[in-house]
Design a protein around this nucleic acid. Structure first.
Lengths: 239, 239
DNA sequence: CGGAAGTTTGATACCGATCAACCGATGTGG
DNA sequence: CCACATCGGTTGATCGGTATCAAACTTCCG
């Protein structure tokens, strides 16, 4: 949990095109190196931050896989997202200067710590960075609109199909297979994200296997028929 | 629909403390007047912007009431939020330079048009404005987390109770009653937002009336027992 | 190796969707 | 101003999808 004082540079990071704006001048690139203060390793099962903690920084995921979730006093729990390399977490903390959700590593992970006051400072001077920050926040808002659509109007099969397609698409953008993936989260966590119980998630996986749409061996999933998944997502509740 | 060339000033707007940062110097206040280019009237039932339209501006609601919703090709439709005076809409458009949802006036409305490039320009110079923009976006993200919790884990009564409490709370912050409100949206729109069918919304209202928690006359709602509503929201799915 | 955690599958219950009928409010044109 | 059409809302009956409860199995990990 101890912050590690490794000095790092975005300018030669292979995730740069995911985290950072494109088309920067060399001078701007060098300045942007300053937004990352340190890196921090987070062990599997361990929180990067927790609900109620003071907000200081955004985090760019270098390696590993996170979930963010909110818990209420009465024991309810909702996974609000799964995040992978190149994605930014911590945006929830800006509004009240404290985090309103937990971010937990689902596998050993490493993040770049980006103090938010430094981001604000630098984005006053580098227009591309300013706009980039705005885009990242807007993207998160739009993503959540999609989740609301899913939770508000889709049935179990549609939700799981949409979930799988979204995951492979993001993994593919990072150079992984379009058809094979390893789930880093449990059935229960998938269920929490999708508004389903873990048994329903399990049953729906089984149904997809029966229908020859996917192969599932524990957390290893191979998608055999992407189009079938797309058809499931787009099929309106027929009648 | 024609933009009207009324020159307006945030500095003497009675909604300023809702839209704009607090604690500005007189000089900063005067500069901020420049973010509002024009005002625009929107008739009831008419869109302020639509999915796919080019994004140019954020809008601050001066009067009236809006819904934002996304529609899919296959006929699904999801209300993603209801917005009232002092709230900002259009944030979804930043990421891809085009809007990804429709914003429709539920009653005759007027908005302040704030060209986004001007916002970015000015927030490079006025730190308080910069941070304010970040807070507005973060607040929207946190709000959507709450909706995800609602859609993912609450039952019909809990959803409607949470919805009513949220509405009166926001209305109260604008000087309206804590216990009386007029719904500007139909049962169907409430249902879409809450992930329920209109019949279920209607039945749940009826149940609340039976239990003496609210009085309902069409769209006029009087809350008789706020604590009961709060208890309903916080009651975990018991077993 | 043993226990805990995670997953699958079955049986049953229940909440909300669906289908349908009716009612009331609103608004429009003759 | 009234007749009538339309839209929104309520209520009832029934159906279906997902939750719940339960048991067995597998995998993981100390």
């Amino acid at each position: 949990m101890k912050p590690e004082a490794i000095k790092v540079a975005c300018s030669n990071c292979n995730l740069r095109e995911l985290c950072m704006p494109l088309g920067l001048s060399t001078e701007e690139l060098n300045r942007i190196d300053d937004v990352v203060a340190t890196r921090r390793k987070v062990k599997r099962g361990t929180p990067l931050f927790r609900n109620g903690e003071k907000f200081t920084s955004l985090y760019a995921i270098r390696t590993g896989f996170f979930k963010t979730c909110i818990a209420t006093e009465d024991g309810r729990d909702q996974v609000t997202g799964f995040q992978m390399a190149g994605e930014i977490i911590g945006l929830d903390g800006i509004v009240n200067d404290q985090h309103t959700c937990d971010a937990v590593a689902l596998e050993d992970a490493e993040v770049c710590v980006m103090p938010f006051d430094r981001i604000e400072e630098l984005s006053r001077e580098v227009n591309a960075l300013q706009h980039h920050v705005h885009k990242i926040m807007s993207r998160e808002i739009v993503r959540e609109h999609g989740v609301m659509l899913l939770l508000g109007s889709m049935r179990a099969e549609e939700r799981l199909a949409a979930f799988l397609l979204n995951l492979v698409q993001r993994l593919h953008a990072r150079g992984f297979s379009q058809s094979e993936l390893v789930l880093r989260m449990t059935r229960e966590e998938i269920g929490s994200y999708l508004g389903l119980k873990l048994e329903t998630v399990s049953r729906t996986f089984s149904k997809f296997v029966e229908d020859g749409i996917v192969e599932v061996r524990q957390r290893h999933v191979r998608i055999l028929d992407t189009d079938a998944l797309k058809r499931i997502v787009n099929a309106q509740s027929c009648h």
